[in-house]
Design a protein around this nucleic acid. Structure first.
Length: 258
DNA sequence: ATGACGGTGTGGCACCGA
């Protein structure tokens, strides 16, 4: 069973690429971020024809998340009730998969702009709230997957320039402590559970031929609860869609559970 | 380099992303 996360940077623009990718990689569940469209514009029909039931939590221009599934979805939650937020960044659902019920938490984490900025403060407050919310989800559900665009590099392996970018946004100690705090709740970084090629990234800037030069960051992550650790079979980044026409700047990350 | 690219909303650009 495969679950994937992909920041599509506008679903209006990227729907053809999503459909194209699903043809070659018909994952069971696909979590999207940065829809940049409202729910009334969500392409429910096109995705249904591709075999996916969807739930979305959109917003005009910015943010927006969705879960697409080949299996039944239920108990959908949008954002955190304990954290008032005008931005659509979280959607959760329980999916009745062949492996049993799976609680999927899909997040478009705050970017944070720069350490010390107001947006960075918001990122930290959002992450504090997220930790409490994920803890409650873990207490309520055994098999939990937390995935999405975290906008955090976990360690120096996740960045093309660890020295030059030290303590800049996505690389700060505070962000990495927040990531570690999520792991400490009882989650496993599925990608690092396996041996991986060096210089594995999930995002590359559109500028400066960054993709061709592999100057990227690994900021899209899939975390699974300890209960799922024995089921981890693979975790990969699929760079193929980064070579599509009009690509997203992110590549999908896929976890295989068995 | 306060740049670069690309998306959005509106507009002749500014703002945001990472």
């Amino acid at each position: 069973m495969k679950i994937a996360t992909w920041n599509v940077n506008s679903l209006s623009v990227r729907l053809p690429q999503v459909l194209q990718w699903l043809e070659t990689e018909p994952v069971d569940v696909l979590c999207l971020q940065e829809l940049k469209l409202t729910d009334d514009k969500f392409p429910l029909e096109a995705l249904a024809q591709a075999g996916y039931q969807s739930v979305s939590f959109g917003q005009k221009t910015y943010n927006g998340v969705a879960i697409l599934s080949r299996h039944p979805l239920r108990d959908v939650v949008r954002n955190m009730s304990a954290f008032e937020d005008p931005q659509s960044r979280l959607i959760a659902a329980t999916i009745d998969t062949p492996l049993g019920p799976l609680r999927v938490l899909n997040g478009y984490f705050v970017n944070g702009q720069a350490p010390g900025s107001e947006k960075f403060e918001y990122k930290m407050r959002w992450l504090d709230a997220l930790r409490a919310w994920v803890a409650a989800e873990l207490a309520a559900h055994g098999n939990v997957v937390l995935l999405g665009d975290f906008n955090i590099t976990v360690d120096d392996r996740d960045t093309y320039d660890p020295e030059g970018l030290r303590e800049t946004i996505h690389h700060t100690t505070e962000e990495r402590q927040q990531f570690q705090a999520l792991l400490d709740l009882g989650l496993v970084d599925a990608f690092r559970h396996f041996e991986q090629p060096e210089k594995s990234y999930s995002w590359w800037d559109y500028r400066e031929l960054a993709f061709r030069r592999n100057r990227g960051l690994r900021i899209d992550h899939i975390l699974v609860s300890e209960a799922l650790r024995p089921r981890l079979a693979a975790c990969t980044i699929d760079k193929a869609p980064r070579r599509y026409e009009r690509p997203s700047d992110h590549a999908p990350v896929i976890v295989t559970l068995a």
